[in-house]
Structure formats: structure tokens, C-alpha cells
Computed example of a mutant assay.
Amino acid sequence: MAQASQRLPAVAGLFYPADPHSLHAQISGYLAGAMPAEVVHSPKAIIVPHAGYIYSGAVAASAYAELVLRRDVIRRVLILCPTHRVAVRGMAVPAAQSFVTPLGAVAIDRAAWLAARELPGVLVDDRPHAEEHAIEVQLPFLQSTLDHFEILPIAVGQVDPKLVAQLLETLWGGPETLIVISSDLSHYHPYRQAQWRDKATIAMIAQLDPHLDGEQACGAGAINGLLIAAQRHHLAPHLLDLRNSGDTAGDRDRVVGYASLAFAEDRNHAQH
């Protein structure tokens, strides 16, 4: 029975090293090399890519590097991702009580899980999570940058972004709660076209425009929910890194776009 309560790694050795020492060394290297476009103080939410680390690990690191100063503050992480393998109507939280990576197990926040389960559009289902990489690849970064934290993994399927925003609103919390949206940008366009498309997507995010579609970002449903909540909470997005697989480890004929963004309270609004 103990085994059933754990969600075991599905993409260790594929998307990232299965050996804990190699994994730790790779993430440490990415974090050490992270040079974000700007330093964001106390981000409430981040958007990070979820490809194999050789493709998008360095881009993701520019957001995770922002968390190190708050490693003893953040205690709960809501992680939202699209569903790549199992279609979901609504949002699925797992029945599993922990997610395991080569760096150890991360517990599910029970109070957040119980609260989420009661919300409209939320179902409890392990199946969308079993083979899904988009949350799993974020966990070793969180394990490397935070001290003691629990998670609520949420697989976002076909759902009204307002319901995603309602879930975020319900679990918003204070400085102890971080929101992570796992999403890549455009898929399989030629390099220059992808750059143009992804810049247009970032411009929409900068305007907090919650009308992204799946062609712009695979995690559009989760991002749109965050953008609605960000409007209410006067959060401003900050672009930390924007690249694609043609910049990192792939050819330039068919690329996938990656961005890291951090959302923090708008200083201008805070002063009024």
C-alpha cells in the first residue's frame, strides 16, 4: 500500500539524470550560470519550461535562481502543468501523497489538497500525473533551491481559466506559497518564426492578457488562470530569459520555445 501512495519518477534518465549526484551537479551548474535579465524580489509566481534539461534547464534556472534567497520562507508550492498524455476535463490533483525524484520524496500539502478537492472543476485522479513530465522536471530544481516545502501538483486540462484563477485565489496564501506554471511556448516552427511568435506571446503576458491559446504555449490554460489572478493581486511579470531549442541543443528547422518569467508585486502599485 505504501507504494501506491507515491508517484514514482517517469522521466528520470530521459529528461534529466537518474543518478542523484549527476542530477545535483547539473542543476548546480545551471543555477551557478543563471544570469536573469533582471533581479526580481520575492516573486509570487514563476513560469518555467519543461523540456529535457539539455534543452531548457538553463532557461528554467534563471527563474529558480530567484528563489534561493527565500529558501527558508517558501513552504508550499502549487505546480500547474498541461496534460501531455491523458486528456482531462477540468483540473486533476493526484491521489498519491508524495512525488519521488532521484533527490528524494516531496510530500503533497494535505491541507491544500483537501481545499482544492472541494473546488469546481477539480477531480482526484492519478492517471494524468503517472507519466506526465511537466511537473516532475520542476521538482529537482525546487529540491535544490528550497529547504522544507510541500507541493500541490495540478494537471490542467480543458477548463475555464476563471476556475484556474479561483483555485489559485483559494490557495494564494502569503510569502510561504509559491506558484509554478510549467509551460513551453511555440512548438516546431522554424527558428526565426518561432522567435517572432514567442515574442508576441510574451507581449501578451506582459499585458496580463489571459487569452493565450495552446499554439502559443502548451500550458496556456494554467497561464491564463495565473494572469487573471495576477491582475487582481497587482502582480507584474518580469521576463528573465527567452530562448528556444535552436539556441540550446537542437537544430533550427523545428524548434520549441522556452521562457522564464517571474511575477512580483508591482512596485508602482505598492507605492500608491
Rank of each mutant, 00 (worst) to 15 (best):
M1T: 14
A2V: 11
S5H: 09
Q6C: 12
R7F: 01
L8F: 12
V11K: 13
L14S: 13
L14H: 07
A18W: 03
D19H: 07
P20I: 01
S22P: 00
L23A: 05
H24E: 14
A25C: 06
G29P: 07
A34L: 11
M35E: 15
M35T: 15
E38F: 00
P43N: 05
P43W: 04
A45C: 06
I47E: 07
G52D: 04
Y53W: 10
I54P: 15
G57L: 07
V68C: 11
L69Q: 15
R70F: 12
R71N: 15
R71Y: 03
V77A: 04
V77H: 04
I79Y: 04
P82Q: 06
A87L: 12
V88R: 06
V88N: 04
R89S: 13
M91Q: 03
V93M: 06
V93H: 01
A95D: 13
A96L: 00
Q97K: 13
F99N: 02
V100N: 04
V100I: 10
P102Q: 04
P102T: 01
L103N: 07
A105F: 01
I108G: 02
A111R: 14
A111V: 14
W113C: 13
W113Y: 12
R117I: 01
L119S: 06
P120N: 08
D126A: 01
R127Y: 07
P128L: 05
A130P: 00
E136C: 03
Q138I: 05
Q138G: 02
L139Y: 00
S144D: 02
L146M: 09
D147V: 11
E150V: 11
P153T: 03
K162D: 14
A165D: 10
L168D: 03
E169C: 04
L171P: 03
W172N: 04
W172S: 12
G174T: 12
E176R: 09
L185M: 14
Y188D: 05
Q195I: 11
Q195S: 10
W196G: 13
T201P: 09
L208G: 02
L208V: 10
Q216G: 10
A217D: 05
A217E: 08
G219H: 01
Q231D: 01
H234Y: 14
L235F: 12
L235G: 08
P237K: 10
L239P: 05
L239H: 02
D241R: 14
L242P: 05
D247S: 07
D247F: 08
T248V: 06
A249Q: 09
R252D: 13
R252A: 08
R254G: 02
A264H: 10
N268K: 13
Q271L: 15
